[in-house]
Deep mutational scan, measured.
Amino acid sequence: MTTFKLIINGKTLKGEITIEAVDAAEAEKIFKQYANDNGIDGEWTYDDATKTFTVTE
């Protein structure tokens, strides 16, 4: 398992979430479901060097 981080730069929600996932594809699926569940819709980026996803509304 690898640790992945999501940085949320939303209009109403900001913060960071860290999860353990098998790979970046699994982490992205989990993070996008979390964002969808919380009404966050924005532009996604991923930095493989730091294993960090960012979503900006």
Rank of each mutant, 00 (worst) to 15 (best):
I30E: 02
T18Q: 11
K29F: 02
A27L: 00
A25W: 05
E28P: 00
D48N: 05
V22E: 06
I8H: 14
L13A: 12
K29A: 04
I40E: 04
K51F: 07
A25S: 15
N9A: 05
I19E: 06
D48Q: 09
G42P: 01
G42E: 02
I19D: 06
W44G: 00
I17R: 03
L6A: 08
N36K: 13
I30Q: 07
G39A: 09
E20L: 04
T12F: 08
K51H: 05
M1W: 04
T18F: 07
L6V: 05
D23A: 11
G39K: 06
T52M: 10
I30T: 08
F31K: 00
T45C: 05
G39P: 07
L6G: 04
A49V: 11
D47N: 14
E43T: 14
K11G: 08
K5G: 05
T54P: 00
A24C: 02
D41E: 15
I40N: 12
K11W: 03
A25M: 14
A35L: 11
I17K: 12
I30P: 02
M1F: 03
N36Y: 14
T56I: 07
I40P: 01
T2K: 03
L6R: 00
D37N: 15
T3Y: 15
L13H: 10
N38C: 01
V55A: 03
D23R: 02
T45P: 00
T45V: 10
D41L: 08
E43I: 07
N38A: 12
K29M: 11
V55H: 02
W44V: 13
A35K: 04
N38R: 15
E57C: 03
A27Y: 00
T3W: 10
N9R: 09
A21G: 02
E26F: 09
D47H: 06
T54K: 07
L6P: 00
D48I: 06
T12W: 08
K14S: 05
A27C: 01
D41Q: 08
K51M: 08
D41A: 14
G15Q: 08
T18P: 04
G42F: 01
T50E: 06
Y34I: 10
A35H: 01
E28N: 10
Y46G: 00
T50N: 09
E26M: 14
V22I: 13
D47W: 06
T52F: 15
E43A: 12
E20S: 03
